[in-house]
Design a protein around this nucleic acid. Structure first.
Lengths: 159, 159
DNA sequence: GCCGATTGAGTTGTGCACAACTCAATTGTG
DNA sequence: CACAATTGAGTTGTGCACAACTCAATCGGC
C-alpha cells in the first residue's frame, strides 16, 4: 500500500478527484465541468445570483468564477448583466437553455447516489457532517496556523 | 444554507480545497505545494520511484507528474535520470536536500492532525475508510457509467 | 533478426484554483 | 460636497489535473 494511503488528506484528495472524474463522464455530453454544474445547481435552487453570492455559496473567488462564468455564458447557459442600481455588481441568471438543463440533468444526482454505495441517507449525512467538521477545522488551521504550530513546537520558517 | 451544501460531492470538494489551503500555509516557507508534498512523502517512505510507480501511488498520470517533477528538480529536492537498462524509464530520487526535508517537515502531519479535530485515530481511520469506499464506487461509475445510467433510466446524450 | 504492438515519459491545450493585482463604482466621514 | 476607504468584478501569472497526442525504447510473435 502506498505510504500516502494512510493519510486522511490523501483519501480526501483521491476521493475528490475520482468523484470529479465520475461527474465528468456524466456531464461530458453537455460540455459541462463539475464546478460549472454546482454553479447551475445553485442557480436552479436559489435563483439569480451575483458573482459575489455565487462565490460565497461555492467558496470560490472572482479569479475562478469570472472566467468560468464567461465560458458558461459563451455556452448559452447563463447571462451576465451589470446591475443598474450598482454598476459594480454583476447579476448572473439562467437562460431558457440553462433552466432547461435542470430537467435534462435530473438523472445526474440519481446516478451519483446510486453509484456512491452510500447505503442510505443517514450514511450520506454522516459523511457530509464529518467533511463539514473537517472543513471548519482546516479553515481554522489555515487562518491561524501559528496557534497550532507553536502547540506542536514547530518553527514558522525553513531551516 | 447554499443548495450545494446538501451534496456529498460538494462537501468533498470544499473539504479538499480547504485542506489544500491549510497545507499551503504550512508548506509555503519551502515553496512546496500539496501534490509536491505527497510526492515527497512517497519518496521518503518507499524510496526511489519511477514516474510510473509514483503515478500509481498518487493516482496521477505523466501529464501531471512530468512538469511537477521538473519543478521539484529545479527546486533541488529531487533528481531524475533515465535508467540505463531501460531508457524509457525515468528514476526519481531524493537529493540530499530533499531527504533533509523529511526532518524539517516532520511537524506538518502533527499540525494537520492537531488541527483536524479528529478526536482519535479510530475516527480518522473511519473517515479514511469511508472515503476509500466512495473512491472505489466512483471509479466504478466513471468506468462503467452505462450500467448505472440505464438503471436510472437516463439517456446517454443531451436532448 | 524483423516488425507491429505496447510501454513510459513528455508535450500541448483547456479548465479550474488561487494569489496578487487593477479599476471603476460606491460608501462613509468630515 | 470632497475624498479617502471600501467593495465587486475582472485580469495576470503559476500550478495542478487531465485528455489527447508524440516519440523513442522495448517486447512479442514469427
Amino acid at each position: 500500500m502506498p505510504a500516502v494511503d494512510a493519510l486522511v488528506c490523501f483519501a480526501l484528495y483521491a476521493a475528490n478527484r475520482t468523484t470529479t472524474q465520475a461527474y465528468r463522464v456524466l456531464l461530458e455530453p453537455w460540455n459541462l465541468t463539475y464546478p460549472q454544474y454546482i454553479a447551475l445547481v445553485t442557480l436552479w435552487a436559489d435563483g439569480d445570483q451575483t458573482v459575489k453570492s455565487l462565490g460565497e455559496a461555492l467558496q470560490l473567488d472572482s479569479g475562478t468564477l469570472s472566467p468560468m462564468l464567461a465560458r458558461m455564458e459563451a455556452a448559452g447557459y447563463i447571462e451576465r448583466s451589470r446591475r443598474s442600481d450598482d454598476e459594480r455588481v454583476v447579476s448572473v441568471s439562467l437562460t431558457t437553455r440553462g433552466a432547461a438543463l435542470r430537467e435534462e440533468l435530473a438523472h445526474v444526482p440519481h446516478c451519483i447516489a446510486a453509484g456512491a454505495g452510500l447505503s442510505d441517507a443517514d450514511t450520506a449525512r454522516e459523511l457530509i457532517d464529518a467533511l463539514h467538521q473537517l472543513t471548519e477545522a482546516m479553515k481554522d488551521l489555515r487562518d491561524h496556523p501559528d496557534t497550532v504550530l507553536s502547540a506542536v513546537g514547530a518553527p514558522r520558517h525553513p531551516a
